[in-house]
Write a protein that binds this DNA or RNA. Sequence first.
RNA 1: GCCCCCAUCGUCUAGAGGCCUAGGACGCCACCCUUUCAAGGUGGAGAUCACCGGUUCGAAUCCGGUUGGGGGCACCA
Length: 504
Amino acid sequence: MSETTLPESAGRPIRVRMAPSPTGPLHIGTARTSLYNFLFARHHGGTYVLRVEDTDVARSTIEHERDIIDNLHWLGITWDEGPQVARGDDIGSFGPYRQSQRMELYAAEAARLLESGAAYHCWCTPEELEAVRRDLEARKEAPRYNGRCLRLTDADRALFTAEGRMPAIRFRVTPETIRFDDLIRGEVEFDNALLGDFVIVRADGVPLYHFVVVVDDEKMAISHVIRGEDHLSNTPKHIALIRALGYDEPRFGHIPLILNADRSKMSKRKSQTAITAFREQGYLPEAMVNFLAFLGWSPGTEEEIFTLDELSRRFDLDHVHKAGAVFDQDRLDHLNGVYIRDLSDEQLALRLRPYLPDALDDDAVLRVTPLIKERLVRLSDATELTAFLTESDEQVAALFDVEQLLPKGRGPAEAATALSSAREALAELDDGDFAADVLESRCRAAAERLDWKAGDFFRPLRTAITGRTVSPPLFGSMELLGRDRVLARLGMALEKVGPQAVGA
RNA sequence: GCCCCCAUCGUCUAGAGGCCUAGGACGCCACCCUUUCAAGGUGGAGAUCACCGGUUCGAAUCCGGUUGGGGGCACCA
């Protein structure tokens, strides 16, 4: 681990965090941010914290939390501190790690802000706020809060309280220039005079994101906040809060966004974003990690296949890009194929198991694996590629029409001839001799006797055996199917061409 | 509307002033291999480095502007 690239952290131990919100399944963008934080922590020997941002109780669910944790683990991302399944059983001494369990903390910090005058109660109703916003927009001004409740008298407040209205808490933004040295973008400058006072605690007492993120990053001693670029313009709010609360300012680093094909921020509406969906389709976690790492980062060389360990050795913020990166499905597919082919037959067979029917026993799965290995883009492709093994002879026969039995330039009668001569040649074999190499030489000999090109001769056989014109290698497929079913399928195909063969 | 960020082949990227008549990968095309499809091999098309101006002996690389794209401006995160 090189210490030379260690970003300055004011002498604090390196602690980074991922802070997913369980309002949906693990998003590809969250996964990549988590990966970068993980790699950063690993590379610098820092501590990695998982914090669940579930203050929005209405939208947060335990199912989503489980999906997030489960899929993070699936990717191989691990953390040093975080929540446990059982509440109150956390790992790490900065817990609890669910924000919903830290409400007293936020209330206390909000009270401090109220007391110092850095925050104030706001009694405006959503309707009033909406009206003000519309008005400002109509006048082409920034849609920010007008500070009305800042000018309330004690009598006004007493009146609202008597009405039973509950106030929200607003942070009073000091007009000042906020500068920070972003780890990825360098010096960034904002004018906070342009910001309106923003709500930090809702009228129902629920504290909001910009507030809790700042409180927790301090209380969890986070040294580097590495997050998506969509938070770049929220950072001056966070810094203002940090100063008002007397906290230590962490280093910030904003990584580029993952984009839809149209270059907008990647979204569920336009792209598949749930990691779990990729997982179900049979993308390998190794491929996913490799792919995600290169979406916005490169090692600065021309190497491109990296394991998680190699990545944590090589990863550094210096090589993280500034521009957003379009999610390229073709590239993911290619990488997935690379990783699939890199697996041993045994390993691959194991991973294929969930995609194949129970009717195919483990031994059969292991035997068919080498036949389909280099034809798989996703593990789920195995389902279709091996379907002919579990389909009944009748089902297979129903899959094709006579057209698909015919080699280029040949008619039904000739297909019938090929089919029957193949059946004859194979029928002579015992069960025990039904091996791919034997089958192949028999069929080649039969083709030769007919004076056909082997490829032409194989086409009707392939269709008859698998029901498809595209299939795994023909003779390996026949071997797996066994003598009886091969002969049966050849017979059924023959019946199918029969009438036309006669008519031809 | 205001603020901020960004800009190298279609896409992901290499590139930190001369090594660049811009390299790699994916995708695409052709050929080879071949029992189909893949995989593999070889080759090819594809970027006047968004544009304009400056700095410099020299700029994809530095500076300024323009244009274009994106993000943010919630009692969501």
